[in-house]
């Protein structure tokens, strides 16, 4: 009996794992027209980190927050680009359909990135560069400028075409500002406007970061500056300090204190009145006895 149950269990598991994801014939014929370049890989990596990593894991091995397929296993890597494209675009069960929020070339960039994951030697090694962040301007016209340089033989050489991400430090993370892509120009510089209405600390001080990340050409680099550009934080404890029904005992509302203590006072006065009257009656009784 146990054996039969076990066999049924095995059969169910096998059938379930073989539940096919039917791919239309024309979908698998779709050609990947995005070349594998460091630039497109950077796009693929940043999309992967934003959209895929949470379930499939940082290393794409299926060890994310959800039970998910390994993307570096042969089971996926042996599939055609067109098939993977179809799967990302349409989704199935827990896999969301990404066709509505990702452009076609972005999906191809992600596929290219997945291919590189199992074949990391096919891209040239990342270079070390120096990143310098500076801030200028006043009022609503404040901007930060990042400068990227590579150490040459005799002097620093400016690096064009490097994507820089600008961030402001917040309570639980870094808030991005600037454009989606901020590539350095021929002078090795790129600027971004500092957004208005940002709240800093008590003095309005904010920490601004510039980062080179998700890049296949350059190693991860960060620089930061501290500027008094934000609005001072306004801590409003008024409601907390006010007398209210939900406040602690020492901040009970006045009317509540009056009513409650009034009742107690009234009862005590009544008791005292009764006792006084008892004594009066006793006195009176002495008079009558005489």
């Amino acid at each position: 009996m146990k054996l039969i149950l076990f066999l049924i269990f095995i059969i169910v598991i096998v059938l379930k794992s073989q539940a096919q994801w039917t791919i239309p014939a024309d979908a698998s014929q779709k050609i990947n027209n995005v070349e594998i370049t460091p630039k497109s890989l950077t796009v693929g990596k940043s999309i992967f980190n934003k959209m895929c990593q949470s379930c499939h894991g940082k290393k794409a091995d299926g060890m994310g927050l959800m039970k998910s397929a390994s993307l570096i296993a042969d089971s996926l890597q042996l599939q055609k680009d067109g098939v993977i494209f179809y799967k990302i675009a349409t989704g199935k069960d827990q896999m969301p359909p990404f066709q509505s929020i990702l452009k076609e070339e972005e999906i191809w960039a992600v596929i290219n990135y997945l291919r590189i994951l199992v074949n990391p030697d096919s891209v040239p090694p990342a270079k070390n560069v120096k990143l310098i962040l500076s801030g200028t301007g006043k009022g609503n016209q404040r901007k930060v400028t990042a400068m990227v340089m590579e150490k040459g033989d005799s002097a620093y050489i400016m690096q064009p075409d490097v994507d820089i991400h600008f961030y402001i430090k917040r309570e639980f993370g870094l808030m991005r500002f600037g454009n989606d892509y901020n590539y350095t120009g021929s002078s090795g510089k790129v600027s971004a406007m500092f957004p208005t209405g940002i709240i800093g600390d008590k003095e309005g001080v904010v920490t601004i970061y510039a980062k080179i990340e998700d890049s296949f050409m350059f190693t991860e680099t960060t620089d930061s500056i501290v500027q008094k550009w934000g609005k001072p934080i306004v801590v409003n404890n008024e409601a907390f300090d006010e007398r209210s029904l939900w406040a602690s005992r020492d901040k009970a509302p006045v009317w509540l204190l009056l009513v409650a203590n009034g009742i107690i006072l009234f009862v005590w006065l009544f008791i005292i009145l009764v006792i006084v009257n008892i004594f009066r009656i006793k006195k009176l009784s002495k008079l009558f006895i005489k």
Binding site: M51, R170, E171, F172, G173
Partner: peptide, 12 residues
């Protein structure tokens, strides 16, 4: 601080 951070993506 008028900012919120997404727990999954870390986007603020």
């Amino acid at each position: 601080e008028d900012s919120v951070t997404n727990g999954t993506s870390g986007e603020t």
